[in-house]
Design a protein around this nucleic acid. Structure first.
Length: 283
DNA sequence: CTGGGGATGGGGCCC
DNA sequence: GGGGCCCCATCCCCA
């Protein structure tokens, strides 16, 4: 098997390659791929709101792509603490945009797959913050007993997780200017942007497509070419996916089963339509 | 209502 | 980094 893409997992839960993204971000100021990119305002639904002293920058409309966020950094403990002393569970996050000296970033936190089982080492300001949480928890332990101690410790852990969650959300930093979709790499964003620009035009009917091979498949609808033949019934198809769907009709076993009536279907769309028709009222 | 074909979209991987 | 290819998914339409 020449290619590995035959193995496909949960398409609805794709995870960006944050390690690769980190590299991208680290070089975003100087690499040729990112030249001409602008730093747009942080979208209000995707990041912390900007302060009045840090008004949003106007977007460069000549630029196709945007970097939504600068490399993330965390405040030094002293900065985060301020004059009044902070709540140790308070999440603080800011970057060079805010005019602050960057502290140790959470370099090891960029791979979300590690998060559930192995947490990255806590360094720099985060370590100080975590220690602050721990000291608070220790105080609670001394005053309130072990159960309260564990609650306080859990609260600190929860805050840490939330902090990392927000941090990771910010990693998907390439935003489409047409629809505000976020992507973890410039290449993925460029690929997506083709769905807006539709650079591939059919010479016969003028219809536009995002990719050359989509146009290729479309042209077959004009020429009638059907290079994909079913080995069972010799029926031919212009698209390999459609041949694959057709092959399921030859299969004795249907892959998709209704949970309500156990009826099986060859395609998930048929199962969905069956369920929507009211067979399974659901729990 | 069901089965199935046609057409297309979009992300991932390899070269 | 881009192109080509593959996959899955989805929508539409018709029998």
């Amino acid at each position: 098997m020449p290619r590995s893409f035959l193995v496909k997992t949960h398409s609805g839960h794709r995870v960006p390659n944050y390690g690769q993204l980190e590299t991208q971000r680290e070089t975003s100021g100087s690499c040729s791929a990112c030249r001409g990119l602008v730093v747009p305002p942080i979208l209000p639904d995707k990041a912390a709101p900007s302060t009045p002293s840090d008004p949003p920058q106007p977007r460069d409309l000549t630029s196709i792509v945007t970097h939504a966020l600068p490399p993330p950094t965390f405040l030094c403990h002293e900065e985060a603490q301020g004059a009044s002393g902070p709540d140790p569970l308070e999440v603080s996050q800011a970057g060079p945009r805010a005019g602050r000296a960057p502290c140790t970033p959470l370099r090891d936190s960029l791979n979300p797959l590690n998060l559930p089982t192995r947490w990255p080492p806590i360094l720099g300001a985060d370590r100080a913050q975590a220690l602050g949480c721990l000291r608070g928890a220790e105080r609670a332990h001394g005053a309130l007993g072990g159960c309260q101690y564990h609650k306080a410790f859990h609260a600190a852990s929860l805050a840490r997780r939330q902090q990392l969650h927000h941090h990771l959300q910010a990693q998907r930093c390439f935003t489409c200017k047409f629809c505000d979709k976020d992507y973890g790499s410039l290449g993925a964003l460029k690929m997506h942007i083709r769905t807006h620009t539709l650079p591939c035009l059919c010479a016969i009917c003028g219809k536009a497509f995002s990719r050359p091979w989509l146009l290729q498949g479309h042209i077959r609808t004009h020429t009638g070419e059907k290079p994909y033949t079913c080995p069972h019934c010799s029926r031919a198809f212009a698209d390999r996916s459609n041949l694959r769907a057709h092959l399921h009709t030859h299969s004795a076993t249907k892959r998709y089963q209704c949970k309500g009536c156990s009826k099986t279907f060859s395609r998930v769309a048929l199962l969905a339509r069956h369920e929507e028709s009211g067979c399974c009222p659901g729990p």
